[in-house]
Amino acid sequence: MLTVSNLHARVEEKEILRGINLEIKPGEVHAIMGPNGSGKSTLASVLAGREDFEVTDGSVEFQGKDLLDLAPEERAAEGIFLAFQYPVEIPGVTTINFLKTALNQIRKYRGEESLDAAQFLKLMKEKSKLVKIDDQLLRRSLNEGFSGGEKKRNEIFQMAMLEPTLGILDETDSGLDIDALRIVADGVNQLKDQNRSFIVVTHYQRLLDYIVPDFVHVLYKGRIVKSGTKELALELEEKGYDWIKAEADAAESVA
C-alpha cells in the first residue's frame, strides 16, 4: 500500500529525514517510535504533504501513485489521513460544516455524488458514537476552546468520517489522560480492518497497549535504526532510548 524509499527531507538548511525506508501492507499497524527530535513528526507531515519540508531525495508510492506529486488535499482524497499532534482551532467554521465540505470535496475528487444534508447527518450520528463525541461539540467552531482530549477525539471522529485507507496518528496520545486515551484507541481499533492501515507515531509505549502494532520502528537522527514487533516497544519502555542511540551512533561512526 505504501512504499517509502530512501526518503530525505529538510526544513531550510537542516536535514531531518536522512533516508527512510518503510513498507506498509494493507491492514497493518506500524508504530514509529524514537527520542525527541528524531524526525517522527516530520515523517508524518511529509507523508501528508506539509509544505514546510522539502523532499530532497527518495520516493513515496501510495497505492501505485507517486504521493510526493500530489497536493495535500489530493493525498487526502486518495485515502491518507493525518491526525494532528496539535489540531488547529478555526474560529467561525463549525466542525459540521468543515467536515461536510471536506467529505464532499473528497467525493467530488473520486467522481462520487455529494451527500445531502440528511445523508450527512445520518453518517455523522453513526460515527460520533464511535468516539463518544458530543453532538454539541460538533456544532461549535472547529476545535475552538476544546480541551486537549476533545481535540484528539475530534481528530479520530474526522478520521472515522473520511474513512481513509492509511491513517497517520501523530502523537495522538500526547496530553491525554488514561480515559481519553482509551476512548481514542477504541475509536481507532474499531476502524481497523484488513484494508486499512495505520502509522502510529508515539514517544511512549503506553498507547501501544491499546493500539497493538504489527511492527515497531525506531527512528533516530532521521533514519529507522531498528525495527521489530511489539516486544521492541516494551523493551524501549523498560530500557529507554539510550542503548539504541549508542548502537546507532557506533554504527554511523564505523560507516
Binding site: 488535499e73 494532528f84 488547529v88
Partner: peptide, 17 residues
C-alpha cells in the same frame, strides 16, 4: 494562518477553498 490552511487541506479541502 498557514497551519489552518494545511489542516483543512489535509482533510481534502483544496487550498483555494
Amino acid at each position: 494562518n498557514d497551519e489552518a490552511i494545511f489542516y483543512m487541506q489535509s482533510r481534502g479541502i483544496p487550498k483555494q477553498e
